[in-house]
Amino acid sequence: MELDKLAEMDLRMGKANQEIFAETLEKLAAKDRDIVAVTSDSRGSGKLVPFGQKFPQQIVEVGIAEQNLVGVAAGLASAGKKAFAVSPACFLTARALEQIKNDVAYSDNPVKLVGISAGVSYGALGTTHHSLHDFAALRAINNLIIVAPADNFETEQAVLLASQSSSPVYLRFGKKAMPFLSEENQKFEFGKARIVREGSDLTIIANGETVYPAWKAAKALDERHGISAKVVSMHTIKPLDTQLLDGLAAKRKPIITVEEHMVNGGLGEACASYLFQKGARNRFQIMGIPDEYTVTGSQMEILGHYGISPEGILARAEQLLK
């Protein structure tokens, strides 16, 4: 993988975002006894085993019972605890969807829902373990901030902000190590996209673990064709950064969105819905997992199959700019 080598030389490699989540939560818990992690036999995958050892009074284990997990977290939050309900994104956002809708969002209990190993992180474990529906399902629920951080910096910031948030928040993390995508742009706010690479010919809007392949594709576009592509980490998919989208609409340059989610109801459709109701005339392409039985294989094989890879994004950009 030529493109992979090319990018890795430039970026400082970090850890998996879900590891940073756990480390940040430990730091918070040490200073604040109201921080409580709620787990459903999920502390291993959530990297929370050390947390459980250090703060046994600040972890509530409910066993394999995700509906109970979210309900219990809602009660804890209602009683003033900063409750982080941590479970694989697939179970958290499908099994416990009604608890999220009623007990968290509608009842306005500021639970911090943490979906780990999101998207197709679980690879060959198959569709039961993939979360390709979570943006769509959760976007249709009022009173929920939805965030998929791209790198370790965004992750740490998102966890800090979530701990202070008076609204319910959903944080979505993957389990692959991520590089620091921009050492310069160190601003982070929910609802304000982070530009990780400047460019003027084309914009790639991505979130979560897909910002990295988008960054690689942008670098290749520059080196191979002298095309300058802006890469945006739209970490907050709700509320969307409409100011940024207004700016893109005004420039009329092509836009590609990339997400580790089904194309139905995710980042791409959120952007398209805003842009085209505003009368935007940009050429626009959504890259994501199509509405079909997902191909089987590892995370990288699945993403590669659907072009959610540096090569795939590069090819789509080349095609769009022809």
Binding site: G123, A124, L125, G126, T128, H129, V295, T296, G297, S298, E301, H305
Partner: peptide, 10 residues
């Protein structure tokens, strides 16, 4: 567990 195999982890 290989690419495109029907024999996955479930």
């Amino acid at each position: 567990c290989q690419y495109q195999s029907h024999y996955i982890g479930h």
